[in-house]
Design a protein around this nucleic acid. Sequence first.
DNA 1: TCTGATAATGGAAATGGTTTTCACTAACTA
DNA 2: TAGTTAGTGAAAACCATTTCCATTATCAGA
Lengths: 157, 157
Amino acid sequence: MPRGNCQGQGWWHGKFKGCGYRLTAGREAILDILSKSEGHLSAEDIYMKIHSRYPNVGLTTIYRTLEVLSNLGMVHKLDFGDRRARYELAEGPEGAHHHHHLVCTDCNKVVDYTDFIDEEVELLRETEKGLGAKYNFQITNHVIQFYGLCGKCSGKK
Amino acid sequence: MPRGNCQGQGWWHGKFKGCGYRLTAGREAILDILSKSEGHLSAEDIYMKIHSRYPNVGLTTIYRTLEVLSNLGMVHKLDFGDRRARYELAEGPEGAHHHHHLVCTDCNKVVDYTDFIDEEVELLRETEKGLGAKYNFQITNHVIQFYGLCGKCSGKK
DNA sequence: TCTGATAATGGAAATGGTTTTCACTAACTA
DNA sequence: TAGTTAGTGAAAACCATTTCCATTATCAGA
Ligand SMILES: [Mn+2]
Ligand SMILES: [Mn+2]
Ligand SMILES: [Zn+2]
Ligand SMILES: [Zn+2]
């Protein structure tokens, strides 16, 4: 069965099977954690959350599963400058909720925002089209992050 | 003498001294390399380029200097998803030339683009203002990267 | 339902970019 | 010129992630 760009419809049971991946306890546990917790978890965050309920899921499996999920487009792998990858579900059962990030360079607080997306989305679409044509790139996604100091940190002086 | 947000005018001799940093052979060498080579060098890239002419500059110094330069805002530290930081000069002697990046997820080719910046810049300014106010963030910079397949890689199939 | 092929797993070891340590050197100020 | 101390190189430590490999579990097909 084919691997790779298997982004179909439905939720993840079918998605997994449809792509020829086996459905294991570890994978279910990871997806369960991801859909329950609000985003931006590191592999180890997930490991610790899982470990209490499924003590026999290893950290290696977390990494491997996250890579699979990322390849399937079910999970976004994020980098906020501390040197550990963070992960968030790309879309829940009821569909995507695309957003961008606001990162405090001091305390690493991360804010999801969608407020300005409406206008952004327009320009982004055009930009992607224009860039794709000009540089012969097939653009699949983008990262937009704003960095600065959160209220608490800029107040600290 | 004060360290930190010492982003004055002029070029780097003055900038360095003005911030209380000593001017050393290693630092000059690193800035020299950075201003001669076109962007996106890793610490080790720089190390190797420097090593032929200044064999006694260690990799540790490269890292340390890059961190200083980054804090001074003279260098941008970039992350393109391979797991090594890359660096580019924020501005040359004749001023800044802000740009964003287009990254091939297959061969890691990176394209600098400025083409669409004009329209982007407008929206970004507004967005920064809006986000800053709404979330009480003091936004200092942003990262915009588009990911996809370059012509060569999407052709390969 | 049983079974074989093999995908998936976990623990330990390896990897590799970056950081830390520490004794030594060199830049700068007075 | 001398003293203070920022800066340095080499080696060791760090630590998130990957690789290895022997073992286990999933699941398509019988
Ligand atoms: Mn998010
Ligand atoms: Mn660039
Ligand atoms: Zn903060
Ligand atoms: Zn490519």
